[in-house]
Amino acid sequence: MKGIVFREFIDMVESQFSLETADAIIQASSLSTHGAYTTVGTYPHQEMVDLVANLFERTGIAVPALLQHFGRHLFSRFVEIHPNFTNAFTDVFSLLNALEYTIHVDVNKLYRDAELPTFSYEQDDQQHMVFVYRSRRQMADFAHGLIEGCIAHFKESITIQRADLPPMDGEAQTRFALVRAAHGHA
């Protein structure tokens, strides 16, 4: 997992909980670099699992909720760090549609060691979008949060229905069905 995700997570914990909480979960986790992450580095995904688990232990907030919250937060941070990234899209559906064949392709060009989830699209029209998210990591909650962050960014009125599917070939699968309200915007 890229270092930027770790850095943003720790920064989020520091700002939304406390420096002490961030330090505590770092101390409690088995981290290869003792919590020192550079955005251009790549680190074991298990370390994120440890950090989130220890944050749950510390705060009592369930892991899925923490991951979802982080996903929303990280999307807003991506908008701040890479405004050109979101400026290229006009709405939620156009951005999500570009994930598999444009955005992640470009990410792989920059970061050849990136292990990204895959998206297969099942339906796409003005009002509906259905796709299946697949990943070797149990990060569907995080993906859910990113989608929520995307919806909030574009200020659209879109509901998300989610169905966790049986794993296939070692990959967790989740189907997301997005429905855009008739008036479209929140």
């Binding site: 270092g3 850095r7 420096l19 330090d23 770092i26 670099t33 003792h34 919590g35 020192a36 992450y37 550079t38 955005t39 251009v40 580095g41």
Partner: peptide
């Protein structure tokens, strides 16, 4: 400790 992590991260970078 936070500063030490930042320094380590900078060195890694």
């Amino acid at each position: 400790r936070r500063l030490a992590r930042e320094i380590s991260a900078r060195q890694q970078a």
